[in-house]
Simulated assay, not measured.
Amino acid sequence: MSTATSGTATRPATRTVPSPLDLGLLLARVIPFGVLAVFGAQKLFGAFGGSGLSGTEAAFAQMGYHPALFFAVLGGASELIGGLLLMFGLLTPLGAAMAMGVMINAFSAVSSAPLSTSGFPIVVGGLALALAFTGPGRYSLDAGRPWQRTGLAWGGLSVALAVVTAVASLLAS
């Protein structure tokens, strides 16, 4: 591996060839978070055969979220916006926090159901958790941009934001 020298420190040269890891991160973002964005569009707009905001509001009321309309909009918007941010690899720590927060609430709502039902929030929340720390990879809108944030501190901040907002919404409902 070649290195570039800056002062007295030596660092690895910037990769010029995409790696299989970059492709893997792209696939790990696009497929599940594209589905999450579709779920948000179903909840908010009735797109893709969804029930729309009125149906979502009724479902949230039945689950004990009050005011139901507020939590329906919050949940649907978190799925749609968080899903799109992660799918495109844009503002990844924020998108990951939104996805994790809504998946914590989703798991809470279905935790007594069989794993076949509660598995989706676990898997999507886990993927968002991983992306919060790894970043979105080379094939993303964050890659190489001044606003790109990855690593332990940003991943930890993303997790903290997700947990605080999820717990606040669970306590407020």
Score class of each variant (00 low, 15 high):
residue 170 L to Y: 05
residue 112 S to V: 13
residue 107 F to S: 02
residue 73 V to P: 03
residue 86 L to E: 03
residue 79 E to M: 14
residue 139 Y to V: 10
residue 107 F to C: 05
residue 90 L to N: 06
residue 66 H to F: 10
residue 144 G to N: 11
residue 126 G to L: 10
residue 83 G to D: 05
residue 132 A to F: 04
residue 60 F to I: 10
residue 108 S to N: 15
residue 58 A to P: 06
residue 165 T to P: 00
residue 128 A to Y: 07
residue 158 S to W: 00
residue 116 S to T: 14
residue 64 G to D: 11
residue 158 S to D: 01
residue 120 F to T: 13
residue 78 S to W: 11
residue 122 I to Q: 04
residue 100 M to G: 00
residue 103 M to R: 01
residue 61 A to R: 12
residue 169 S to C: 04
residue 164 V to P: 01
residue 111 S to G: 14
residue 65 Y to V: 03
residue 102 V to T: 14
residue 171 L to I: 07
residue 146 P to Q: 01
residue 141 L to P: 06
residue 79 E to L: 14
residue 110 V to D: 11
residue 69 L to I: 12
residue 118 S to L: 12
residue 64 G to V: 10
residue 89 G to F: 09
residue 160 A to I: 00
residue 83 G to S: 00
residue 149 R to K: 14
residue 71 F to W: 15
residue 136 P to Q: 00
residue 104 I to Q: 08
residue 125 G to V: 04
residue 76 G to F: 08
residue 156 G to E: 06
residue 71 F to V: 03
residue 162 A to C: 07
residue 112 S to D: 14
residue 137 G to A: 03
residue 74 L to G: 07
residue 70 F to K: 02
residue 119 G to T: 04
residue 128 A to G: 00
residue 65 Y to C: 03
residue 83 G to Y: 12
residue 75 G to Y: 06
residue 141 L to V: 03
residue 92 T to H: 09
residue 60 F to K: 12
residue 90 L to G: 10
residue 67 P to Q: 11
residue 106 A to Y: 00
residue 67 P to K: 12
residue 65 Y to L: 13
residue 132 A to M: 06
residue 133 F to H: 09
residue 60 F to E: 13
residue 140 S to T: 02
residue 113 A to P: 09
residue 100 M to E: 01
residue 156 G to K: 02
residue 171 L to F: 01
residue 67 P to I: 07
residue 169 S to I: 06
residue 118 S to H: 06
residue 105 N to P: 06
residue 62 Q to N: 13
residue 134 T to P: 05
residue 138 R to Q: 11
residue 60 F to L: 15
residue 137 G to L: 08
residue 72 A to N: 04
residue 147 W to I: 01
residue 101 G to N: 10
residue 171 L to W: 09
residue 170 L to H: 02
residue 88 F to I: 11
